[in-house]
Computed example of a mutant assay.
Amino acid sequence: MSKNKGARIVITLECSCRNSINNNKRKKGIFRYTSTKNRKNTPNRMELMKFCPACNQHKKFKEIK
C-alpha cells in the first residue's frame, strides 16, 4: 500500500536577475534552488532571499512553475 502525497510539494526557486544585462559577472546561465513547501499553509508563490553565484550577491528568488 502506498501513502498519499500529502500537502508538501517540491518547488523550484529561480533568481530574479535572470533577465538582467549584467549577469555575466561570474558565470553564465540561470541559477536555481529546490525546496519544499506546504501547499495548505502557503498557497501563493514563495519569494526568498538566497545567494546567487551568477551575480555574487543575495537576491530575491521567486518560485517558478
Rank of each mutant, 00 (worst) to 15 (best):
S35Q: 02
M46F: 05
N4W: 00
N23I: 06
N38Q: 03
M1W: 10
K59S: 02
R32I: 02
F51E: 00
S16F: 04
T36W: 06
E63S: 09
T36N: 06
I11P: 04
A54K: 15
N56F: 01
F31A: 00
K50D: 00
E63M: 11
R39P: 02
Q57R: 12
N24Y: 09
E63D: 12
K62T: 12
N56R: 09
K50Y: 10
K27C: 05
C55F: 04
R18E: 11
I30M: 03
K60W: 15
T12N: 04
P43Y: 07
L13G: 03
Q57K: 12
Q57M: 06
S35L: 05
V10F: 06
Q57N: 07
K62M: 13
C17K: 15
M1T: 10
K28N: 05
R18P: 01
L48R: 15
M49N: 08
F51D: 02
N24G: 05
R32Q: 11
K3P: 04
F61E: 06
I30A: 01
C52I: 02
N38L: 08
K40G: 01
T34G: 02
R39N: 11
K28C: 01
K25L: 13
V10Q: 05
K60F: 14
A7G: 06
C52D: 02
T34D: 03
N23T: 11
K27R: 12
N19T: 13
F31S: 00
N4M: 03
N23D: 07
R45P: 04
P43W: 06
R32T: 09
T36I: 03
K50L: 15
S16L: 08
C17Y: 11
R26D: 04
N4Q: 07
F51P: 00
N56D: 14
I11S: 07
K59I: 08
N19L: 12
S16R: 10
I30D: 00
M1L: 12
K3N: 14
I21R: 15
N56L: 09
P43I: 05
T12C: 05
C15Q: 06
M46T: 05
K28F: 07
K3L: 14
V10T: 11
